[in-house]
């Protein structure tokens, strides 16, 4: 089972970084979202500094969602999705492995470049660290919840549009706890309660999302 999972993670990783794999596109999208915000709210550095952490979280949320339809979509098109069902490993574990390798090439880089984009939004150094930290904890939950939507919409023509519609309401708790933890950390307020809630949501997503996605894939492929 280990070699099965490693093979899957290695292949998905390799596909993502090869040309045409779309690696980096979510990052460019993230940059674009952050870049257009000042055009809307004005180049007011004080205001941007106040809402900066929230802007980064929104940007990371949207950037996670775009591209999630490829998580199973590409495999469904070339027929390799059927192989998931005949591998010597349980389907929920396999989809969890797929989600994790997807997170490594999307969520993790998003969290990593967030401080850089935060500089442009006039966030002070400790705020940059706080945002990157909460994104590191929160983005896996976003990817996992998104995976449910990806499994539900696999093979649908309008899947790319339907997916965010299905997934965004589910991400409300992640957004709330993520941003409030960030703000508490920035303000120096006690952050333990919101941080533990964020962790709880992420852990719950780790358990429930693979089960839901596996069930959805089974139904969708039958």
């Amino acid at each position: 089972m280990t070699s099965t999972l490693l093979a899957l993670i290695r292949r998905d990783f390799r596909l993502a970084v090869r040309s045409g794999g779309g690696f980096g596109l979510p990052l460019v999208f993230f940059l674009s979202v952050v870049a257009v915000i000042p055009f809307a709210v004005g180049p007011d550095l004080v205001l941007l500094g106040r809402i900066g952490a929230a802007v980064l979280w929104i940007g990371a949320l949207l950037s996670t969602l775009i591209g999630l339809d490829r998580l199973f979509g590409a495999d469904a098109e070339d027929g390799s999705l059927d192989l998931l069902f005949s591998a010597p490993a349980p389907l929920p574990v396999l989809v969890l492995a797929k989600a994790l390798s997807h997170w490594v090439v999307t969520g993790l880089p998003l969290a990593a470049i967030a401080p850089l984009l935060g500089l442009m939004l006039n966030l002070p150094p400790h705020a940059l660290a706080a945002t990157a930290f909460t994104l590191l904890i929160g983005t896996p939950a976003l990817t996992l919840l998104g995976m449910i939507g990806a499994a539900l919409t696999v093979g649908l023509r309008r899947g790319g549009l339907l997916l965010p519609v299905l997934v965004l309401p589910m991400t409300v708790p992640v957004l709330i706890f993520g941003v409030s933890t960030t703000n508490a950390l920035i303000a120096g307020d006690p952050a333990a309660s919101s941080l533990s809630l964020l962790l709880a949501v992420t852990l719950a997503a780790f358990v429930l999302a693979p089960l839901a996605a596996a069930g959805a894939l089974r139904s969708a492929r039958s």
Binding site: I148, L166, P169, M170, V172, P173, F177, L208, A212, G215
Partner: peptide, 17 residues
Amino acid sequence: ILTLVGFINVPIIKFSV
């Protein structure tokens, strides 16, 4: 499946809001 995911999610969303 989506409905049941929502069923688990609704209390969490309600609490978070």
